[in-house]
Design a protein around this nucleic acid. Structure first.
Lengths: 143, 143
DNA sequence: TTAGCTGCAAAAGGTTTGCAAATTA
DNA sequence: TAATTTGCAAACCTTTTGCAGCTAA
């Protein structure tokens, strides 16, 4: 399963004229295995476990390259580091502003809102880039 | 009108045990006059026009104080600086990810979504902290 | 008088960049 | 070989912090 995702990504990278280096393969493997909610820092650590001298800047540059190809996106879940994730399975991030808990919800929930914004403002929603803040069930219960 | 807002904010600040200094009065005036979408940098510049040695750190500290009192909030419209705004008139920010244009829309538009999230996930939406990205009408029209 | 603010300078924290050397296709 | 990537070190940019002096109440 994951092998296929890995290959899909590497092929796209290659097809765009990019090169598959050890560092890139290791990074892509790390993202595929992490499968969501990983910071550049997390990825750097994972990659460095097997390839100690892959530098943070390489991580960032490769993530940039993957984003430009539309294979990866990053989301700001709060202040501080962004998290990166693969672009299949479109979903939103609900983040509890008190405990930090992250809930993934399917994109379709945002459909009605997206339609309203389209009709009323001509605005085409692409809400994935920032998290949606609020309170999770537990934190909403305890004041 | 704005005088009333100014006084309301200063009173709240005073009531919480805070002191009204020249710097604080100037900053609050600047926010009231700017009325939305101002960065700390913008505010610093405005304040410094009349009070050149108010330092950036004072701006940030005062904004913090105002946020703690629930008088002001800040929103991340994109990468880089956050923007600050007064907390009356609850609204959302739609930001065009291509041209950067900001559209304010009333909170009520998010009511149905908020209800869905509440029902389905026990999640209480508080969406104001991050902007909602997408494409404005013009940019959506031209590919 | 005294708690609360301030300016300054310096640091923090995440991300980006210039460069020369190394590597891929 | 030619074009891309890489590691490194240093810079960047916004925001935060420690501190000693200043000031509003």
């Amino acid at each position: 399963m994951d092998g296929a995702r890995l290959e899909r990504i590497l092929s796209a990278l290659r097809a765009s004229g990019g090169r598959i280096t050890t560092a890139r393969r290791a990074l892509v493997t790390a993202i595929v295995e992490a499968d969501g909610h990983v910071t550049a820092e997390d990825l750097a650590e994972t990659v460095q476990r097997s390839h100690p001298d892959v530098h943070r800047s390489t991580i960032y540059r490769t993530l940039d390259a993957l984003e430009e190809l539309g294979l990866v996106d990053h989301v700001h879940l709060g202040h501080g580091r962004a998290v990166y994730h693969l672009l299949d399975d479109p979903h939103q991030h609900l983040v509890c502003e008190r405990c930090g808990h992250v809930i993934e919800v399917p994109d379709e929930l945002f459909r009605p809102l997206a339609d309203d914004l389209q009709k009323g403002y001509g605005f085409r929603l692409r809400p994935n880039h920032f998290a949606v803040l609020g309170r999770c069930a537990e934190c909403a219960a305890t004041p």
